[in-house]
Design a protein around this nucleic acid. Sequence first.
DNA 1: AAATGTATACTTGTATAGTAGTATTTCAGA
DNA 2: TCTGAAATACTACTATACAAGTATACATTT
Lengths: 236, 236
Amino acid sequence: MEIDTGDTLNAASFRPQESLSIGAQLHRILRAAIIRGELVPGQAISEIEMSKKFAISRQPVREAFIKLGEERLIEVLPQRGTYIRKISVKEVLDARHLREVIEVSIVREVAEKHDDALIKTLRSLIAEQRKVRHGDNQAFLLLDEEFHRTLALHAGREYMWRVTEGIKAQMNRVRFLTFDSATPMPQLTDEHAQVVDAIEAGNADLAAQRMEQHLRALLNSLPLIAERYPDHFVAE
Amino acid sequence: MEIDTGDTLNAASFRPQESLSIGAQLHRILRAAIIRGELVPGQAISEIEMSKKFAISRQPVREAFIKLGEERLIEVLPQRGTYIRKISVKEVLDARHLREVIEVSIVREVAEKHDDALIKTLRSLIAEQRKVRHGDNQAFLLLDEEFHRTLALHAGREYMWRVTEGIKAQMNRVRFLTFDSATPMPQLTDEHAQVVDAIEAGNADLAAQRMEQHLRALLNSLPLIAERYPDHFVAE
DNA sequence: AAATGTATACTTGTATAGTAGTATTTCAGA
DNA sequence: TCTGAAATACTACTATACAAGTATACATTT
């Protein structure tokens, strides 16, 4: 069975792979909606509300809520209600730091055991990134993630990459807040290119340093964003 | 929920731990059972079996299964069955590596901003570790984890520590396999002490190096263990 | 007027029943 | 004896109903 997403989500984003359970499908849908900010932080959602909206029973909704709770995207208060979690600046910065530690370590490994095929793949991704039309931030985001994932999997660090999935969720919530304004795509792409150059040269220290800078730049506007959208963040 | 009539009006007797749902309680129980090896890898478990065993309905069991599945401790095959995951040597080593990257980064931070209170706490933990009687590996394991957690929280890295919870689950499954044989407690304790010395000296590089060695030693017997318990591991 | 009890309308948590998919067994037919 | 399709016995998945906790509005009492 497949749940009716109605007009809340375009069918193009669905992968025709294996049939997921209703709960798993809803989890994906809600997760994306939270990250994209369609469900705003602090907003109350309920199992009944969602079950009606998608014409399913409460049980699958419940299971989706459990997963979202573990990802810290919502907060389930027993017998009281469920709310979209507000973004915590501290938590986002902490997550970003963990991602930095992970990816710097990965790029070091990659620099020490790279091959021509990898370099070619990475350069191809960078070329695609340059072709993204101005303003299509979502397309760029996908290519950006593929670039980083390629590095992680080449190093054989699937476990690490699975962890960064959760990290990226927190970070992307912030990035989507400024989705209207332009992402500095050319700059980020140049940084990618410089990382690849360092990898190709086999210079692990340089690659690590450039990756570190790259990841730090991603959220350097966080304080301003938090100030502009005070309702989206927890007071701390 | 019922009130405790025994210690009425004694505020100190209040447990800071809120009442967990049945599903959450079962999750804890099963998680511990899997890590301790009481539920052996490959073994089939079912919702009905557990609901009968604990005299509860199947719904809470289901929710516990979902959480265990996300932790990769069990594998839920839709319409087929649920099984205790076999241990993957690659995954354990990858997890250990991630833990190394995380904790080395943490100990660097701690070395650069330590204080006397922290050193005192750490030395106190080490003293307790020395007092653990030979063979009581579980007591040592708890003190070991508290040592590492203290470092993480002092660095203000709660997010990182949450991630290592999942990592430790995978590693501890291996450690519990050799629970009968003696853990080299004196050696591990000495390594802890040397890390603290480096922290107190403010030598971040040395502290990092010693932590790295310490964490690598934890699983150096993994290949032998995997060979001795082939049924517990996935063929790869 | 202020404090307190109570009904009500929410919420999430749990139990039970039935659905749908998979694997195994059974047994007719060669 | 072997083959293969249908019956059977599981499994996880979903739907519905009910239980229990919480917040709020409102009546009651002091």
